[in-house]
C-alpha cells in the first residue's frame, strides 16, 4: 500500500489508495486521532470542484468534530 503523509503543524493525515472494495477509494487517516474516511471517485471530483467557501465550511472546527449541537453545525 503506497502511503503519503501530508503534515503541517496543524494536522497530520496519511493518504493511501484502498483497493479492498469493489472499486478504488482514497483512504484518509487523521494520524492524531486515528479517525478514517474513505473517498470515492465522485466524492473526490466533487471536492475538486467545490467552491473554496464550501471547503472553508468544513474547516470550521464547529462544523463537525468540535460541534456542540449535533443537529446544527451552523449554530443559531
Amino acid at each position: 500500500m503506497n502511503q503519503w503523509i501530508i503534515a503541517s503543524e496543524f494536522a497530520e493525515v496519511a493518504v493511501s489508495l484502498d483497493l479492498d472494495a469493489n472499486g478504488p477509494r482514497l483512504r484518509l487517516e487523521d494520524l492524531r486521532s486515528g479517525h478514517v474516511r474513505h473517498l470515492d471517485a465522485l466524492e473526490l471530483e466533487s471536492i475538486a470542484w467545490a467552491p473554496d467557501e464550501r471547503l472553508r465550511e468544513l474547516i470550521d472546527p464547529s462544523a463537525g468534530r468540535w460541534s456542540d449541537r449535533a443537529d446544527d453545525a451552523d449554530g443559531a
Binding site: 472553508r56 474547516i59 470550521d60 472546527p61 464547529s62 462544523a63 468534530r65 468540535w66 460541534s67 456542540d68 449541537r69 453545525a73 451552523d74 449554530g75 443559531a76
Partner: peptide, 19 residues
C-alpha cells in the same frame, strides 16, 4: 484563513453560534 479572517471556533454555541 491565511488572510487573517476568522474561519471558526470549536463548540460555537458558547458564543451564540457560528459567525
Amino acid at each position: 484563513r491565511n488572510t487573517g479572517e476568522m474561519l471558526g471556533y470549536p463548540y460555537n454555541q458558547g458564543y451564540g453560534g457560528k459567525g
